[in-house]
Design a protein around this nucleic acid. Sequence first.
RNA 1: GUGACCGUAGCUCAGUCGGUAGAGCUCUGGUUUGUGGCACCAGUUGUCGCGGGUUCGAGCCCCGUCGGUCACCCCA
Length: 405
Amino acid sequence: MINALRGMKDIAFEEADKFIYTIETATQIAKRYGYQYIETPLLEETKLFKRSVGESSDIVGKEMYQFIDKGQNDVCLRPEGTAGVVRAYVQAKLDRRPRKDKFYYYGAMFRYEKPQKGRLREFHQFGCESFGEASVYEDFNIILMIRDIFDALGIGYTLKINSLGCSECMPPYRQNLIAFLTPKEALLCEDCSRRIATNPIRVLDCKNNQCQTLLHDAPKLTQNLCPTCQSDFQTLQKLLDSSSIAYEVDTHLVRGLDYYNKSAFEFVSSQIGSQSAIAGGGRYDRLVEFLDGKSVPAVGFALGIERILDLVTLPTSKREGIYLGSMLTQEGIMETLFALASRKRQQTKVEIEYEPKSLKSHLKGADKINARYCAVIGEDEWSQGEIWIKDLETKEEYRAKIEEW
RNA sequence: GUGACCGUAGCUCAGUCGGUAGAGCUCUGGUUUGUGGCACCAGUUGUCGCGGGUUCGAGCCCCGUCGGUCACCCCA
């Protein structure tokens, strides 16, 4: 028997219904916010992710499905969605004209990690990217949209926000932090002493207790923001307050992808195990430039579909469609059933049982597939050119001419 | 990459002190010669993950291996 690869899952039956329902719900809401669909390749040049997600990130450092293809290209299965969308945006030269562009996407992402609850090697994200709008109102608008999606799906969450500063205030802060950390390097954990050089900001959210103790007097990012970032961050909080979206400021919310700046946020669920982030995103005003475009501000998010699947409550499914069967083996009866099915399928779902069997068995079968109508041809009906129909919901039964039903 | 736990029927699991495997669910049929869901009755189903070892004898004990799950790390 051949099994699916480690960390890769088949999605079927009720899970599949939830999967589709989640995407449809999110799509509908994204469209209402003015987003258009974009589909980008699952396979991209490796350097796209090195330059966007960042070499210091775990994703690029150790989790990529990377290989050399038959044309000697260094390629990767995408580990996240934003990089590809930005690449497409720049490739289509949309950065050359002053317009806002808003895209939504969904699909498979790949990270070579050790699987656990809520963490798969192939998983699916729904995401949105908004280009060309620098206003913090757009950050707020995106958070509102995610709120709408989770509300529509009936999912509870807590929202965490932070500001990562901009190219003006982040570099000096970063230098301050390095200056603060360097004397303590020997006392920090192995990862953190390495991070001082590669990505000192990440030291802030280290889970190591000793590191956290040492960080107690570290300069705080939120207290070193430039006036613009400071006022934008406050505006965002005011907007959230006035729309009664509960949130907490989490100064340790740093995010593992290097391209974020200014607003960063994460939606967290307490009901799904330790991998609790169900959606995350923020602003990435420099990324278009990193990928050879003009300077275009942007903000976006992604939500993990598998992570919320258990939390999605499907609208209660009603009986639907027709079950067709016969109790006879007579010549021509299957042809009649197929013709009837084709006609009825213009309107609704139709399934045919090929095996002649007792009425009781047919009713059981119709009940099992949750059909609204059970329609069966027996001896008496066949001789009259009729079919017997029972509405399984109202329990009404009647007979009709086959051609007229 | 590190650690813990678990692999027995299609699914969920039980299996005592080591003595050649069992329940519920599902499925099929019947109780009703043409009336669903509920109930009752009957029937079908096994490489006990794999390999080796100990033993008269291993689902059970030991070693190895593969797979799964969860957690750390990281992230959606």
